[in-house]
Computed example of a mutant assay.
Amino acid sequence: MTQDNPDLGEKALSKVAEVGISSQLDEAENIDVDIRTDPGKLLQGQVDSVEISGKGLVMKQDLRVETLEVSTSKVAINPLSAVLGNIELTRPTDAEAQIVLTESDLNRAFNSDYIQSKMQGLEMQMEGKPVTVDVQQAVINLPGNNQFVIAADFRLRERGEVKKLSATAIPKIEENGHRISLEILSAEGQGLTTELVTAIFEQLTNLLDLRNFNIPGISLRIRQLDAQKAKLVIQAATQIEQIPSA
Rank of each mutant, 00 (worst) to 15 (best):
R64F: 02
T2Q: 14
L192C: 01
G56D: 12
D105Y: 00
I170E: 10
V83E: 13
P92S: 08
E51V: 14
I140R: 02
L42G: 10
I31V: 03
Q228F: 01
H178W: 00
E66I: 07
P92I: 06
Q224G: 11
L208A: 09
K15A: 11
R157I: 10
K74N: 13
V33T: 08
V33F: 05
I243L: 15
G191L: 03
D38L: 05
L207Y: 02
E241L: 14
Q239R: 14
L182V: 05
N5M: 14
E103I: 07
V75K: 10
K60P: 14
L63P: 13
L165K: 05
L185Y: 07
I180N: 00
E27S: 12
K118G: 08
S186A: 14
S22N: 13
S117P: 10
E18A: 03
A187T: 11
H178G: 15
L232P: 15
A28T: 11
G160K: 02
E195N: 12
E161V: 09
P143D: 07
R211K: 15
Q136W: 04
S71W: 05
S186G: 14
P79Y: 03
L165Y: 00
A227M: 04
L156F: 05
Q239K: 13
I215K: 00
D62R: 09
I140M: 01
Q24A: 10
Q3R: 13
P143Q: 08
S81A: 15
V65N: 01
G217P: 12
L25C: 06
I180Y: 00
L13C: 06
L142C: 00
S245Y: 10
E69L: 12
D62G: 09
P130E: 08
D134F: 01
G217S: 13
N5P: 14
G85D: 02
E69G: 13
N30Q: 15
R108I: 09
S112Q: 05
V16S: 12
P130F: 03
K55P: 07
S245V: 15
S73W: 07
